[in-house]
């Protein structure tokens, strides 16, 4: 229960950065923190107390392994999610650089004012 609340706190901090910060880099940082929180929550859901990683080593009994291993399914989905997060960050940074090149500032309200 307590680790879930930590992940929720991280999610809320990321959302706070997205909503309440005017600087575009800070907004990108908020998106990154939100991604970390969601990935952490997925992995926390699949953790088994005293569990072993879902990788079989030589001479291990399969039934004992299946009774002790942590959940491989959220891990497999989180791998793809992390790499998608990297693509999203790259796209956001590209947009931020274009905006800076056009308006000469990273401030959101300034950009709105310059646009008129």
């Amino acid at each position: 229960m307590i680790p879930y609340l930590f992940a929720t706190a991280m999610l809320l901090i990321g959302l706070y950065a997205i909503v309440a910060r005017r600087n575009l880099i800070k907004i990108v940082i908020g998106v990154a923190i939100t991604e970390y929180a969601v990935n952490l929550f997925l992995i926390l859901l699949g953790y088994r107390a005293g569990g072993i990683p879902p990788i079989l080593s030589k001479g291990m009994d399969l039934n004992k392994f299946a009774a002790n291993s942590v959940d491989p399914l959220p891990q497999a989905l989180t791998v793809t999610s992390i790499v998608i997060g990297l693509g999203v960050i790259a796209l956001l940074v590209a947009l931020v650089l274009r905006l800076y090149e056009k308006y000469g500032t990273l401030d959101e309200s300034e950009i709105k004012r310059l646009k008129g």
Partner: peptide, 13 residues
Amino acid sequence: LGAPDIAIVQVVV
């Protein structure tokens, strides 16, 4: 949390 796969991906990414 017993996820070495994710740990590698996370540190590299």
